[in-house]
Amino acid sequence: MTDWLVGTVTDVRTETPTGRSLTITVDGWPGNLAGQHLDLRLTAPDGYQAVRSYSIASVGDGPAVQLAVDKITTGEVSPYLVDDVLPGDQLEVRGPLGRWFVWTPEDTRPIQLIAGGSGIVPLIAMARAHAASGSIVPFRLLYSVRSPQDRFFADEIAALESDLFRVDYVYTRSAPEGWATPPGRVTPERISAATIPVSETPGVFVCGPTGFVETVARALVDLGHEPQSVKTERFGGS
């Protein structure tokens, strides 16, 4: 049984116009693998409770857990986390959770990461774990966002980029000036052009809104990837 723990918000950063990252320091947190999530529980003064799952951006030991949250304006929990929470506030969490959508350095396959919006969160944890472990397996990230300012962890991703971690962006609404491709959603052609080819039998991790994940997963299988090599995490939404 995984117990609820009380964490204290220790850092808050604006990441995008609608999203921010939060660091929560949780006494008793046992550390986590790259890709795991936690459940976060808010309790209203009248006792009403809301529980939501959030992927963890941080990886490894220690009591500090980093999340990144994009605001769903009609949501019950994300507007509070993005607009209202301040350092010193307390939140209840349960975790780490899930051992399926995880990457560990023992996995020696080439790895393709594909993120839509805040779906980058568990994938940045994998990129951080890859860099920290000194793993020499090739990683590649395809990151779909509305516009350049909607990128979470943009500076860190740029700093991590190397021969062993290639990064490609798809801009769906507005691209930087001079960008080679016009803005548009991910298509099978774009996926094929900017991902590790089937011939290298990569492991693939896809995370994002449900519609995005299903489009991408279908395209990957159509390209010839084995369904078992494509792991997906849907967070609902549009």
Binding site: L97, P209, E233, R234, G236
Partner: peptide
Amino acid sequence: MSSHVDGNALAGPLSEVFHTDMTTA
């Protein structure tokens, strides 16, 4: 929640009942 999610989200609720992570079952 306006759309479905996947079984990863069951890890927390099922951790109250089972002592191993059931999402890999």
